[in-house]
Amino acid sequence: MATKTVTLEIKRQASPDSPAVWEKFELEWRPGMNVISAMMEIAANPVTVDGRETTPISYDSNCLEEICGSCAMRINGKARMACSALVDNLEQPIKVEPLSKFPLVRDLQVDRSVLFENLKAVQAWVPIDGTYDLGPGPRVFPAQQEVSYPLSNCISCTCCMEVCPQFNEATGFVGAATIAQVKLFNNHPTGRVLAEERLRALAGDGGVQECGFAQNCVEVCPKQIPLTDAISDISRDVLFQKAKDLIRS
């Protein structure tokens, strides 16, 4: 039997409090296989390499084309999107673990609500709700579009936070994604109305100042968002905002 096989070692944990165990699976190789499709096959026949029956693996995924941001996990130690992690490009056995900086739900599923909370804390939106028609928005010039478009590509995967040495329970750092979204919405002609509030928010504890400029975020971002550029720009804006507030208070 000379069929090519794929070996995966997956860290499992039935609940947040139960102990973590590693399970090994061997699958028949298929062209174009990725980590999510491999786990789908495991779900169809959840038997470990030593013939023991187990449960299907729990994980988040949706789009399967690296656009929804839900399938971030650590693959061979590095945070990345599982659906675009092609088996052919990975060293075997492929070690799959949940993200380490977020509360575990089950197996590879983690609770990433902190990013959602952070986006709310900086009001990462364009406020257009009102009781009457506000009319068409102002024009966004192409030069501005070119700056904004890459930032708008964020898929909220939290990879940039997972790999950041400053993002941890001691600092409560907000993380690169939220800072980049502040830049996006502060540059939007209508979103700008909240610019000052966003900058003040980011000067709070856990704000932009906690960044140590290790630049891991920009290395890992699956959407190649210019995160360090955004951090630099927003740091300056926050500083100016604080200085203005100081002399005007």
């Binding site: 750092f173 928010a201 709070g204 856990g206």
Partner: peptide, 11 residues
């Protein structure tokens, strides 16, 4: 549990 959100404009 886990990393806490930004303390917006605090501290």
């Amino acid at each position: 549990t886990g990393v806490q959100p930004l303390r917006a404009a605090k501290g």
